[in-house]
């Protein structure tokens, strides 16, 4: 081919557009599915974590108080109370009263303990509230309390 007939740079300008083949519908669905699964796993991981220590960190706390008397009506001596599942404890005052602060929200169990035995009482702690359990008779029974 003579030099005059050979193409110049202008013949190539503007450059032809390189066209990508359109993404197939199947590929799009596949990638969408993968992304959804990855998100689901992230949510599940957080839920599994939440079942552990993180869940207990949620919510507020309240105060619970009461009076513990022995079967003969006198303040229980050498006794203390404890919220099960927590480190919260309080020694009974000489008049048998007690108060525990920072009790986490929800249904809780308070146990009253003397030297050998204990009595369990369920209650619901509500954030910001003071719950007065009133008089607790410290009586150990061979069967569950009604």
């Amino acid at each position: 081919m003579p030099l005059e007939q050979s193409p110049t740079l202008k013949d190539f300008y503007p450059a032809p557009e390189t066209t990508q083949p359109p993404a197939r519908r199947g590929n799009k669905v596949f990638r969408y599915l993968t992304a959804c699964l990855a998100f689901l796993i992230l949510v599940l991981l957080l839920s599994n974590l939440g079942q552990g220590g993180l869940s207990s960190a949620r919510g507020g706390s309240g105060v619970v108080r009461g009076l513990v008397l022995s079967e003969n009506g006198l303040p229980l001596q050498d006794g203390y109370v404890k919220i099960l599942g927590t480190d919260l404890t309080a020694t009974l005052a000489p008049d048998g009263t007690f108060e525990i602060k920072n009790v986490p929200d929800g249904v809780r169990s308070l146990v009253v303990l003397d030297r050998y035995t204990g009595l369990e009482i369920s209650f619901s702690a509500i954030s910001g509230d003071v719950l007065d359990l009133g008089l607790i008779r410290f009586r150990i029974t061979a069967v569950p309390e009604p």
């Binding site: 204990g118 009595l119 029974t141 061979a142 069967v143 569950p144």
Partner: peptide
């Protein structure tokens, strides 16, 4: 001694009243 079979809970070495009898 109780005339029963029971499940009992223990807290700090103290025995609580049975929770199932």
């Amino acid at each position: 001694g109780l005339g029963a079979i029971v499940f009992r809970k223990w807290v700090d070495g103290r025995e609580l009243s049975p929770f199932a009898v």
